[in-house]
Design a protein around this nucleic acid. Structure first.
Lengths: 153, 153
DNA sequence: CAAAAAAGTTAGGGATGACTTATATTATGC
DNA sequence: GCATAATATAAGTCATCCCTAACTTTTTTG
């Protein structure tokens, strides 16, 4: 609503950078370019480039050698990505019983192209199913047994 | 197993081309470059480029002005992509009750990065849930009511 | 507080991928 | 055999992403 000019669309990789900015802020109160470089395994100069791009699109406040922070818009978007990420990871791991590492990895790939609406429904499905269980343990045994049976057939 | 050299990995877009080749073959017995160009809304010359790439990687038989056909490997891979696509579409549409068009569109994006294992579990979840319903109609009303309630809260 | 270390930036490249238009080439139906 | 429809090639655009190397700024610390 606020911005009409659409040069502020984010590529998957820029979304990763933005997500990383928020994640680091959450876990240690402040971000340094180096944290992001380490976390994403890229060079420091790649981080500079990404931060410049994010700033140009209005998602972060950025000036050379200065503190990095999210704009309101940036916080909104980063938050959305992060919560997609978490919702997906949870769904894959707890509902589909995928091993944590693969669940994470898959969530990372999906989070960029999965529409909000689908995530919402996924979350809804999760709680719908879990509501009818005593606990997640119950679901786990029930569903993994079913899967095993299916595999045989 | 058969090939050790990994220059035969496919980008998302090459997967789309390969999938299109199979889809067209299925629906009209033979493929022409033009069919693919129309279906994917790209120029003929983009199609030529993609077909060359697919041939170089061993997924199709291709020689200038000759008939296009899938290699065994190509058929296997294209089939896998197509069935991922179908499984995802079905899951989104029938299980999550996403409108058909969005379901399709989302499946298109996901099919390239969703691991087999996750698709399998998704399919399993689908049948697990459907098994405990009289029909898909029952699920539809049950789940959409639940979603509505969730939205309010 | 000055010098060394660490962090950040800039400049300059290079690879890839996915398209395009414009110009040839081939195939085939009449 | 020739026109035309289908294909192919050439050459180039554009965007994304990343890197190294050299430089500047900031921070740390003896």
């Amino acid at each position: 609503m606020s911005e009409h000019f659409d040069d502020n669309k984010l590529s998957a990789s820029l979304e990763d950078y933005l997500e990383a900015v928020l994640a680091v802020i959450i876990e240690k109160k402040a971000v340094r370019a180096k944290d992001i470089a380490d976390r994403l395994s890229v060079s420091r100069s790649s981080v500079t480039g990404a931060l410049q791009a994010l700033a140009a699109k209005g998602y972060i406040h950025y000036a050379p050698y200065d503190v990095i922070s999210l704009t309101d818009e940036g916080e909104k978007v980063a938050g959305a990505i992060l919560s997609k990420h978490n919702a997906l990871t949870k769904f894959f791991a707890e509902m589909l019983l995928i091993e944590p590492e693969l669940a994470e990895e898959t969530a990372c790939k999906m989070e960029h192209s999965m529409p909000e609406e689908v995530i919402e429904r996924l979350t809804c499905l999760y709680s719908f199913v879990m509501d009818s269980q005593k606990d997640t343990k119950e679901w786990s045994t029930k569903f993994s047994n079913y899967c095993k049976k299916q595999k045989k057939a």
